[in-house]
Amino acid sequence: MPVDLSEFDHPSWLTAAGTGIGYALILAVLTLAMFIVPWLVFSAL
């Protein structure tokens, strides 16, 4: 059964992927700022 991938060419898929990547990036930055940086500061004391 051939799969038609042309339905994924719509700009909404690019928007959805960008939203997911943006949320992941923000989550990574907040995790770094709220947990990793304080842990490094307190472990250096």
Rank of each mutant, 00 (worst) to 15 (best):
residue 25 L to H: 06
residue 33 A to P: 06
residue 10 H to C: 06
residue 19 T to S: 00
residue 11 P to R: 03
residue 6 S to P: 05
residue 38 P to E: 11
residue 32 L to I: 09
residue 13 W to N: 15
residue 19 T to E: 04
residue 16 A to C: 09
residue 39 W to L: 03
residue 37 V to K: 11
residue 2 P to D: 07
residue 12 S to L: 03
residue 12 S to D: 11
residue 38 P to W: 06
residue 42 F to Q: 14
residue 30 L to G: 13
residue 39 W to P: 02
residue 9 D to K: 06
residue 22 G to P: 00
residue 28 A to Q: 06
residue 43 S to D: 11
residue 28 A to T: 09
residue 9 D to E: 14
residue 11 P to M: 03
residue 6 S to V: 12
residue 30 L to K: 09
residue 3 V to Y: 06
residue 3 V to I: 15
residue 21 I to E: 04
residue 35 F to M: 12
residue 6 S to W: 05
residue 37 V to Q: 07
residue 7 E to L: 15
residue 43 S to A: 11
residue 2 P to Y: 06
residue 4 D to N: 08
residue 2 P to I: 14
residue 36 I to W: 13
residue 28 A to D: 03
residue 35 F to T: 14
residue 28 A to Y: 05
residue 8 F to S: 08
residue 21 I to Q: 01
residue 28 A to F: 12
residue 9 D to V: 01
residue 3 V to S: 04
residue 36 I to V: 15
residue 20 G to Q: 05
residue 30 L to Y: 10
residue 16 A to F: 08
residue 17 A to C: 02
residue 13 W to F: 15
residue 22 G to H: 02
residue 7 E to W: 06
residue 33 A to M: 12
residue 19 T to A: 02
residue 32 L to P: 07
residue 24 A to D: 05
residue 12 S to P: 01
residue 17 A to Q: 00
residue 26 I to H: 08
residue 33 A to R: 11
residue 4 D to V: 06
residue 33 A to K: 09
residue 41 V to C: 04
residue 22 G to I: 03
residue 15 T to R: 01
residue 43 S to Q: 13
residue 9 D to N: 10
residue 42 F to R: 15
